[in-house]
Design a protein around this nucleic acid. Structure first.
Lengths: 203, 203
DNA sequence: TCACAAACAGACTAGCGAGTATGTTTTTCA
DNA sequence: TGAAAAACATACTCGCTAGTCTGTTTGTGA
């Protein structure tokens, strides 16, 4: 779960996430990423066996960013609505901090069927789905607890509620722009408003 | 706004939307779409000048599907929360009905920068953004009205609320699967639940 | 300091896919 | 009914990119 990655590898992932975000996962070429690094493809293919593996590594890292941030604040002994509110704040905060990674995940969420996936790339995809499910469970548990305890309105399918809430919390991926004038107050406003909406949507 | 399109052109758009959805906008080739139609690229290039134009046409049609469905029920003389609830129901219903088109929009929402856009493709993109903004205005107006009248909680930026609500209503794009056993009741459940959540998230 | 491996650079190939150019069929209409 | 245009089919080109192969540099440990 926590394989440490070298500085060079991490740098490559950052560049890949950035290029995938701005150009699109398929449009961005390995040469684009290498150029953005100020080096050549030799460096990339030395660390990653294929483009698909590189893409999966970016997505995997995105999932782990949010998991490592949110898991510590998912305290089951607390009131579910309070707990969900802090989880939501933390999630949005982390998404804004590591935006390129999550925009890549967003892109590849739509088209689920790669054309000719390698055996190993298939395994990476399975691993990715597993960790994503694991992360979603954090939210599902607190939402179900809230429905049982009565602070959330009971629904036919709590998984629909969970998925919808997570989508709501990821809404900034569609319109948030990284600007030079990183207005701290704007971020704070977005975080608060989305967390409020997430909790309110379940009442 | 309402250019009638021939039966053949419409059929091509359906096939393109399907292939773009299942294979991805960039992965799906013109030959893939032609094969799915039981014909060859000649037919497609006779109706559309380029792949980018075809993609834009799909996205434009998606925007018009929802607009034509929702605009009639956006009654400003009504209570904003009631109005938003019916708009939300209608939106989700239409999205589920024309799912492939909207999944294509979802995909191309992430990567905003095509590599070398033609002059004409640029114009199509501008036209598309304009109609999308126009559709979003329908929701923005009723949300702002609700905040003024007091049935919605006032926020710093109503546009953030609007964008988040629309994202929430599009949540099925991430997990809804077209199945042979189109359970009508499941659709109804999803529609109701999402519309409820959308209105509740603003209180 | 020397061997050896890791970490790259640079040139090359092979295949895929967008777009084109031209032929063929079908429809339309005068 | 005949000619012209629309609606396709087929064969081809050409650029781009993933992946490879072979050199070259930089650390690293004995």
């Amino acid at each position: 779960m926590l394989e440490k990655l070298s500085a060079s590898k991490s740098e490559i992932l950052d560049a890949a996430a950035w290029c995938f975000m701005t150009l699109g996962c398929d449009t961005a070429s390995i040469d684009d990423i290498a150029r953005h690094l100020g080096s050549t493809k030799g460096r990339i293919y030395h660390h990653f066996p294929s483009k698909g593996a590189l893409l999966s590594a970016v997505q995997l890292r995105a999932a782990r960013f949010t998991y490592q941030a949110v898991a510590p604040v998912a305290d089951a002994s607390e009131s579910p609505d309070v707990c969900l509110h802090r989880m939501s704040e933390t999630h949005v905060m982390e998404v804004l901090r590591t935006l390129p990674y999550h925009k890549v995940v967003l892109q590849s969420y739509a088209s689920v069927t790669p054309k000719s996936p390698t055996e190993m790339e298939q395994d990476l995809l399975i691993q990715l789905r597993k960790e994503q499910r694991c992360y979603a469970q954090l939210f599902l548990r607190v939402i179900e607890a809230g429905m049982v305890q009565g602070c959330f309105k009971p629904q036919d399918d709590a998984r629909v509620s969970m998925a919808s809430v997570l989508t709501l919390l990821n809404a900034p991926l569609f319109w948030y722009q990284i600007r030079p004038d990183q207005s701290e107050s704007f971020d704070r406003m977005v975080i608060d408003q989305l967390a409020d909406m997430a909790v309110a949507s379940l009442r």
